[in-house]
Design a protein around this nucleic acid. Structure first.
Lengths: 206, 206, 206, 206
DNA sequence: CATGAATGAGACTTCATTCAT
DNA sequence: GATGAATGAAGTCTCATTCAT
């Protein structure tokens, strides 16, 4: 295979001469996720990420300027991934009950299939940021989303609570309940049922 | 020994600038708390703690065997402190509404007076532990407490949700709402009012 | 890859001033030997070894897991080296006199060309070891060798002394005499002549 | 015993008020010897010596200017002690055989009653000396003594070996044999008998 | 693109010594 | 004299990053 004639150079795309692994960046990202989740930011060395990806130490710096930027990328990717799952399940004109169920399902599935990723991704960015960059933590963003949802669904009468505060409360409730339901050995169905009842009752007008 | 004759001068000064600073351990603990809160575990060096306490590097190791043990002590202290505030506000036969208000007040005050401490103390111990020590995170413990409360107050009819799950949900809601209410610029009163309404409605029987 | 066309310039320089010094391990070992000999174990810092080798601090730990392992390696290397010299000079069926002369020559040459190495390599391993590793000191091993030699050459009549004890005595005598003969300004010939006479007389039957 | 009447103050010499231990210096020296022998120079901290002596850390510096001076004192004391034992056993007009037996007995007894001290005291002073101070190692001094003895006993005919070299050889032989005879499980008698035979034969004229 | 030997700032920790009591 | 809390220089080792190949 690939026996080139004398003097002739044949480059086979994507296989090359055996060196070049395909998709180094992808392999690095996957490795980084695994290690950040298992060990946390500080205990993960770029060298470990590269080795986990089956690449040389130096290759890491071909794809990331920094260990920090690698971590920030991991956070961002996780956000997108979770958000996609959320949006996919959210029918445009769902009612409150459906919304709660959809979000719960999404979070639960995510935590289920990527154990530990959520916690790692919620690591406060401040530790990583030397400068003031980085935005709000993931959880806070979801809280804001919920506040928006509440504002939108409050067509009839004004709610008698602060939607921003309650938005954050809901986000906190969902995530913490989802996290612990694994430890408690509850099934996804039990989680969704209980929380849906709890929240719909809390949110419905008197 | 120590029986001073009349006219003896007792030097109380006790501040000097030389040796024998009073209460080095206390100063170190205070400094450690400050820095762990401001910078997190990894970004805080024992040297910084000592300097912050106005002591030499070596003094740190007169009081802690380790950076790790210093952090673990900080966590434990914070737990005790918050738990005391909680217990102090909790009247034995409070109803649900009063209970919610009490816990919210305690958390809010704590977060208010010790900004950032809560998040730092909630750092997942696994990173620091290495061995199997350390128990559940603070937040989970509170969730269990709430589950117990719910179980106790469900005299009449069985609730139609899983109390363990909802206990965790409530804990998550309270902490996240408390955290963000600062960022949102809400007063303590607004926070307590909104959350109390929200929770009592969610928990009250249909 | 690497097939150079005609006229291609191959840079052999290989010394440069930048990265990739040739044979870092060799340079480090040589530097370590020099410093361990000159200053002893405790007074030699890994950093010094690296600098002496013209390398950065960190490079030391690319080749040794530990300062301790570096020292242990030095000991082992020295043992091998000296043993080789010994074996090389030892004809299989040498008589006692020839044996004495051979060993003396080997030790003397070694001490001559590597001044101080012997003493350093004889440093009692117990200080460095901590665990039960490491065997007997070099000198004791030689003593055992001598005991074996004595046992072998005692064909006719049993010697009237304990060969194990006298084996150790001979080893001690040779090494101490070799060491001091330098300080005394004696030539190699004088040393060998005196000691050979002394030992052959002591060992010959009445 | 010592029941003092009311209001009467009785100072019992050497007992005082319970504080002042008698002979702090002696206790420190004893402790230092123990630890230097067990752990070696570098692994022994002044603090350990003081604690071993049942005294406070600071007391060490009331009696020694330095850790180094403490060690040097230990060496010197050991030399004197061994030398005294040697002189005590050495009858002024002993013949060679008696001389050998006397020295062997002295060394063996010393090594027997103070295991490890000899090796510690033979630690090359260069490690400890920053400056060029310190004299010759103990073993070398003994070698010189033996050279003197040989010179003295060579009344009749000149020996056919270099007395300085052979003096060192004898010292090395005696010490190494004494050391190892413990490890070999030989009794003092066996050691002395074998070595005496060996040496007298080696030294006697043809 | 890929590699990994090399680097050195800097982290954690120890320990000889001082000095107020 | 005696004490031990305090000190900070210094030691061992790690790790993010570079760069010649």
């Amino acid at each position: 295979m690939g026996r080139a004639g004398l003097g002739q150079v044949v480059i086979i795309e994507g296989e090359r001469n055996g060196r070049r692994r395909p998709d180094s960046l992808g392999r690095l990202k996957q490795a980084a996720r695994k290690l950040f989740v298992e060990r946390g930011y500080d205990a993960t060395r770029p060298q470990d990420v590269a080795r986990e990806a089956g690449l040389g130490h130096g290759t890491f710096y071909l794809h990331f300027t920094d260990k920090r930027s690698c971590f920030l990328g991991f956070i961002e990717d996780t956000r997108h991934e979770l958000d996609e799952q959320l949006q996919a399940r959210l029918m445009p004109d769902a009612n409150l009950e459906q919304r709660v169920a959809a979000m719960l399902g999404a979070i639960y599935d995510f935590v289920d299939s990527h154990p530990g990723v959520l916690r790692a991704a919620m690591t406060d960015g401040r530790v990583i940021d030397a400068d003031g960059a980085e935005g709000k933590p993931l959880l806070t963003l979801w809280g804001s989303d919920w506040a928006e949802t509440l504002r939108g669904s409050a067509k009839d009468g004004e709610p008698d609570f602060d939607v921003d505060i309650i938005g954050q409360a809901i986000a906190g409730a969902l995530v913490q309940a989802s996290r612990e339901s694994h430890r408690l050995g509850r099934s996804r169905e039990e989680l969704v049922k209980s929380l849906t009842r709890f929240l719909t009752r809390a949110l419905r007008p008197d």
